[in-house]
């Protein structure tokens, strides 16, 4: 929390409640849906495929979800979480690996590819936020459901007609 004080140059008497209320609008100014969409678009264009687009439309809720995420620790603490269904995750892994993709993907390949996408989006989200911050290593599994009360900023998109969300969740532990 001392880092938060450093960031906002808060006076010594600034209380917990005051800091929280200051943090929210500032973060929203720095990081809006358009910024997250722009970052995700570039990741898709470069890594998934040059004609791959994320259509900014919410789809059906994900039925068999898998999430990957990276934590950001610094003046702002939180996580960048990518969530889709398993079939979508496998398709993403194939796109990333292109001609190197094996006939049968093992689950580690899928986790690794989804984790790397979270890392790429997370690193670029971190650069938009006030720093200095540290990016954690990617993790894969069941993350807090996107759309929960901790979402700071979230985009719901369709990729090849399938739903996918990118959510910036935090402030964690505040």
């Amino acid at each position: 929390m001392y880092q938060e004080q450093w960031l906002f140059s808060a006076p010594a008497d600034t209380g917990e409640r005051r800091r929280r209320s200051d943090a929210a609008p500032l973060l929203a100014e720095l990081l809006d849906e358009a910024t997250v969409q722009g970052i995700a678009d570039e990741a898709w264009l470069a890594l998934v495929g040059e004609a791959e687009v994320l259509v900014p439309l919410p789809g059906e809720p994900v039925t068999d979800p898998i999430s990957s995420w990276v934590e950001i620790v610094g003046p702002w603490n939180g996580a960048v979480v990518l969530t889709c269904d398993r079939t979508t995750a496998e398709e993403l892994a194939r796109c990333l690996l292109r001609e190197h993709a094996p006939d049968v993907l093992d689950p580690e390949d899928v986790d690794d590819a989804l984790g790397e996408l979270a890392n790429v989006i997370g690193g670029n989200v971190k650069a938009v936020l006030p720093g200095p911050s540290v990016l954690g290593l990617p993790a894969v599994g069941a993350a807090p459901a996107p759309g929960g009360p901790t979402d700071t900023c979230r985009i719901d998109v369709l990729w090849r007609g399938r739903p996918l969300t990118v959510s910036v969740q935090g402030p964690a532990g505040a």
């Binding site: 990741a43 470069a46 690193g123 670029n124 650069a127 990016l135």
Partner: peptide, 26 residues
């Protein structure tokens, strides 16, 4: 790397890296 702050690039160059490619890249 996906580390893409200005300060991080400066740190890497100062440590002795010659070039820097930000993920995502083509």
């Amino acid at each position: 790397t996906s580390e893409s702050e200005h300060t991080q690039i400066v740190r890497a160059l100062a440590a002795g890296a010659h070039e820097y490619v930000i993920k995502p890249f083509t």
